[in-house]
């Protein structure tokens, strides 16, 4: 089935404009990661997810639908579909991930909250007002829609008096820290990745993990935001031996993820090439972006196991027996 780029971009932009996300997901599922954490709403500092990890199981189901439909996951809905989607959220009918699929991605922001608490950082959450940043729409060049959305996101920060956002993934970090200041006059939010926060404060886990991991830098962290040393510094403290692939650090290779919404076959081919590089140096890989994680794991299949960096960082603290205590904010 031929790809209609114009309608695919149109549906994604319409969703952001009308529903505040490229792929709207139920609010209850977007905030499930906060369960048991007893977080306050708002405050001067918040942990901000931009829904990136929570979106992944939905995107994956859309991609699975695409494989049945043709070359793009929206191929069967283009043209007529875009017109329908303006009044009825058709993308919501295409993805219903189960608890197991969602829990993997809910775990990551929960991990990060525990790690920040352990480091003595006080923060709240914006819960259902923790909105998608608009990263994909920025990449696709739909600047007018993005600008209006960025203003909505910033108004939520202002409403709760937020001065600092601690981000998790590279795309939300880049949007809030580097892109939004170019769109919003007077924008003054301080934005740091949790990896930078933990590296600055001192992480120092008590338990040593063993083994080798191939590190996969996110393009956005490494080349857009200069986040290269913090993840290495933290991983070294876990005791893991970091193996660097041929393309690494500021010369990292892309996972292919940015091409997935329009050219999934291109994305898959790039992911396979990247997995080959990573597999050449270690049997396990570590990622720091949900898109990298899902693309690389999918390409690797059973030949290589990937973990999000927060999983390793928390595993190295588990011997401390603090997880339950930290979760309760004590």
């Amino acid at each position: 089935m031929p790809l209609a780029t114009s309608d695919t971009v149109g549906i994604l932009a319409d969703n952001l404009r009308l529903r505040r996300s490229v792929l709207p997901i139920p609010a209850a599922n977007a905030i499930r990661w906060t369960e048991g954490l007893h977080l306050a709403r708002g405050g001067e500092r918040v942990l901000y997810t931009g829904q990136m990890y929570q979106l992944i199981p939905y995107i994956e189901q859309m991609v699975a639908t695409q494989e049945k439909l043709g070359d793009s996951w929206l191929a069967g809905f283009t043209g007529f579909g875009r017109r329908v989607n303006r009044v009825l959220n058709i993308t919501s009918f295409m993805a219903h991930p189960g608890v197991d699929e969602r829990s993997v991605y809910d775990r990551i922001p929960h991990n990060v909250a525990l790690l920040l608490r352990r480091a003595g950082v006080e923060f709240g959450s914006l819960f259902d007002e923790d909105l998608y940043s608009g990263a994909l729409i920025y990449d696709l060049g739909v600047d007018e829609v993005l600008k209006a959305h960025a203003q909505k996101v910033y108004e939520v920060f202002q409403k709760y008096g937020v001065k600092e956002a601690i981000t998790i993934d590279p795309h939300t970090t880049n949007m809030l820290r580097t892109v939004y200041p170019t769109l919003i006059p007077g924008y003054d939010l301080r934005v740091r990745s949790y990896l930078e926060v933990l590296a600055d404060l001192g992480y120092g886990p008590s338990r040593k993990l063993s083994g080798e991991v191939a590190i996969h830098d996110s393009c956005v962290f490494a080349r857009y935001e200069g986040v290269v040393e913090a993840p290495r510094q933290l991983l070294q403290q876990t005791g893991l031996t970091i193996r660097e692939p041929e393309h690494t650090g500021t010369s990292t290779w892309c996972c292919g993820g940015p091409a997935e919404s329009l050219f999934p076959k291109t994305a898959a081919a790039q992911a396979s090439r990247r997995v080959s590089e990573l597999r050449a140096v270690a049997g396990r890989g570590v990622t720091m972006c949900p898109l990298c994680f899902v693309n690389l794991q999918k390409a690797a299949g059973d030949t290589m196991q990937f973990e999000d960096i927060s999983d390793y960082l928390l595993q190295a603290c588990q011997a401390e027996g603090l997880t339950e205590e930290i979760a309760n904010g004590h």
Partner: peptide
């Protein structure tokens, strides 16, 4: 490249929300 995409979005696809 983003500028080129913006051109396609606004002038070819007519999808800038304006």
């Amino acid at each position: 490249v983003r500028a080129l995409r913006h051109y396609f979005d606004s002038e070819v696809f007519q999808i800038q929300g304006g």
